[in-house]
Design a binder for these strands. Structure first.
Length: 159
DNA sequence: GCCAACGTTGGC
DNA sequence: GCCAACGTTGGC
């Protein structure tokens, strides 16, 4: 019995890692998340879950593509590397505090859906991204997800 | 570059 | 356990 499909939104600064980088690489470990709520959301992910790829700190910020989870949560080893900017001495190897998932490229959408567009959409007024702007990994309802896909002209379809 | 929002830390 | 101080995120 496959797990029920869930939907998410994940943010990345395009200067750090953009949708074009993901397209080039195919898939990517989503390391460096150091927020408990975001981590808990990643722990809840299943392989095949779809993700809206959001560019934060961009001009303008917004949804630029679709990705999907290809590996469920496992320890984020960058927390153990003193040379990493994500190093966290409070996350020992025998009790990892931080985890990551791998995501794979699905598509870059024909139309970018900016945060302004999302906020202007009445059907999306209670979407997390328009309310809790600082949460970098957040759940998206199926209805909201479909709505954003339609706005973006995405090839990806959700039934 | 500014600053509001908000999550985390640490003193008490 | 409270809360002030501090650091970070991210829109503008």
């Amino acid at each position: 019995m496959p797990a029920k499909k869930q939907f998410w939104l994940m943010k990345s600064e395009p200067d750090a890692y953009s949708i074009d980088d993901l397209e080039r690489d195919g898939s990517e470990p989503w390391d460096g998340i150091r927020n408990y709520q975001a981590r808990n959301n990643m722990r809840a992910m299943n392989v095949g879950d779809l993700v809206l790829f959001y560019h934060s700190n961009a001009k303008p910020p917004g949804v630029v593509g679709v990705a999907k989870v290809c590996k469920t949560a496992y320890p984020d080893h960058t927390a153990w590397d003193p040379k990493s900017k994500y190093y966290d001495p409070k996350s020992p190897e025998d009790a990892p505090r931080w985890e990551m998932v791998d995501v794979e490229f699905v598509e870059k959408t024909p139309t970018m859906v900016s945060l302004e567009d999302l906020k202007a959409e009445a059907a999306l007024e209670d979407m997390v991204v328009t309310q809790r702007s600082r949460l970098s990994v957040q759940p998206v309802s199926k209805e909201h997800f479909k709505h954003v896909l339609a706005m973006a002209g995405a090839k990806t379809k959700v039934r």
